[in-house]
Amino acid sequence: MPIRSPYIDPEIYNRVHKMVLRARAIVEGTIVGQHRSPYHGFSVEFRQHREYAPGDDLRYLDWKVFGRSDRFFLKQYEQETNFIGHILVDLSESMRYGSKPDQTKAEYAKLLAATLSYLILQQRDAVAVSVFTDRVVSYVPPSTNPAHLYRICHVFESTRAAEKTNLGAILGEFASRLRRRGVVIVISDFFDDLDRVLSGLQYLKFNRHDLIVFQILDEFERSFPFRGLIRFEGMEDEGIFRTQPQRIRHSYQELFGRFTEGLKAGCERMDVDFQQVLTSRPVDAAIREYLARRR
């Protein structure tokens, strides 16, 4: 009997079924898979030559090189393995915002995370999911079992967006936890201090993870289309501001644009994939767009 979950959308899964999320960096897996492993051996795929040292297996001597240079070199081959995809989902208060009641950033982030989990699992890689605010709220350990997706969805269903965010600190904490290199996908609106956010990403990148950043935004946050007399109530206890939004729209958009551009530029500097996604955009389309660009 199939399990029903709002985050399991067969249509979306059908559309992403044939997509592949390849680890661009070297990942550390336990089984033979599609992805390059840092554990060098004598597999089918040549990687590099290394000068012979006493004790080396003579089977891997490259005799052609010896014939041309009269020196002993060993051929080294890359071993293909599977990877663990760590999906970090921000469910802080700010993610609760949605210009449409049924389309909050949090829900979109959960759907995106579930879809990516499906994508990873169906290519026999392992996926682990962490939900965080200013702390880790829940954690689903890695698994390659396709049924693992239901466990992930269950966690999403039982977790509501709450509390403040502290991205810099929480990303640093993840960096210290995830010692084994893999693919780390961070899904958040990143509404925090830009330097702290980039610092947290830097920690993750320092562990040589293949880091992918999905910034989830609502269209209203970008266009700020409000008019009239509005009392903006901060969702993370940031106070109340009364204003006529049309009179500050230009400044807001400039500040907002400057932030997202800064985030993007920071990610590029760290060789981190950055993808800004509007909640109005279908999840599969967003993934397809990203994967097309990643290729």
Partner: peptide, 22 residues
Amino acid sequence: RRRYRPVPWAAMRFLREAIRVN
């Protein structure tokens, strides 16, 4: 002042800054 429409808002840091600037 009593007729302001309440709107919950996430991107308060940009709003706050925009208000401060303007």
